[in-house]
Simulated assay, not measured.
Amino acid sequence: MRRGPAMALAGLLLVLSAGCTPSAAPAVVLSTAPGPTPVASRPARVAPTARSTYQSPGDFYLLHNEIYSAGQVPAVPCKLPKIPLQTQKEVQQYANAVLGCLERAWKPVVERADVVYSSTVVYVVDQGWKTGCGIFGKDDEGFYCADAGIYLDWDQFTEESPDDRVWAGVYLQFTMAHEFGHHVQQLTGISSYFDDRWSEASGAARLEQMRRHELQASCFASAFLGANQQTLDLYGERLEAYRDAAYAGDDDAPTVQPDHGSRKSSTAWAQAAFKAKSPSACNTWSVPAERVT
């Protein structure tokens, strides 16, 4: 499907919204392919320190997580296949290559945050596929499932013609980087404590917690892409394609509930992270509500 900017922005919001909210059902590993080693549901509870005497352990891990002081994401060797994105096999091949780049870049950062790194996998599937987090529905384009992996609807990442190739490739890169951002959140305990906040909130307060979580995943994505701008050749038309994807907001698709962040907020977090090349620019939990609209 050819994606002009307007269609692409709406499509990206669907990709980022599907499967990123907490689920009451436990994840199960697919029997059709080996899944990653399950990660702990959350870090061990810690005794309060002088800095955190007024905070719950959950707030401590959200506001003062060691990932924020783990340093820049490194530039890594990242050779993506020069192939058309027209078939499920080609999208899977390209997504696997992007995942390899993400893992090489994030592994040392996660380990510097004093966390044991665990890898993940990507499944490029059809609608109706049984995933570790339920059935891949007709409205799903992609999501991250803890303990199982990243799922993508392959048909949403194909090109209609060679003119689409730049957009399709960069769109897939950013979507993978965002979903991998959720993997980083899972590894470092952020997702577990977000689950607690989400469960305790309702209405507008719940949507705000979701925006903090999703904006952070996109921010982590931009930190990786900024660090690897040269490796991924994000200049000229490719840089513009990245910006189209990264700056998209809930207000670009009025039918989408405001759970991922406005164009203004998405742009601000993406620009900061792309420049910093570091998760230090991505503490969405410590800022006022007006920065996560």
Rank of each mutant, 00 (worst) to 15 (best):
P5K: 08
A6Y: 11
L14A: 15
L14Q: 15
L16K: 05
G19I: 05
C20A: 14
A25D: 12
P26F: 10
A27C: 05
V28P: 00
S31Q: 11
T32P: 00
T32S: 15
R42K: 12
R42E: 10
P43W: 11
A44Y: 06
V46I: 07
T53W: 11
F60H: 07
Y61T: 02
Y61A: 02
I67A: 02
I67F: 02
I67L: 13
A70F: 07
V73R: 05
K79L: 11
K79M: 06
L80T: 08
I83N: 04
E90S: 02
E90K: 07
L99A: 05
L102S: 07
K107I: 01
V110N: 01
V116N: 03
G128C: 07
T131A: 05
G132Q: 07
G132H: 04
C133T: 02
K138D: 13
D140Y: 09
F143P: 00
D147Y: 07
A148E: 13
I150P: 06
D153A: 08
D163K: 12
D164T: 06
R165L: 13
A168W: 03
V170L: 09
A177M: 05
G181A: 03
H183I: 01
V184P: 01
G189S: 08
I190W: 01
Y193G: 00
F194D: 08
R197Q: 11
W198E: 12
S202E: 14
G203C: 06
G203R: 09
Q209E: 14
S218P: 01
C219F: 08
A221K: 06
S222P: 00
L225I: 10
G226P: 11
G226K: 09
Q229C: 03
Q230G: 10
L232W: 14
L234F: 13
R238V: 12
R243P: 06
D250S: 09
A253T: 12
T255V: 12
D259V: 15
D259Y: 12
S262N: 11
S262Q: 12
A268H: 14
A270V: 04
A270I: 04
Q271T: 14
F274I: 05
K277G: 11
C282P: 08
W285F: 15
W285G: 08
P288T: 09
A289G: 00
A289L: 04
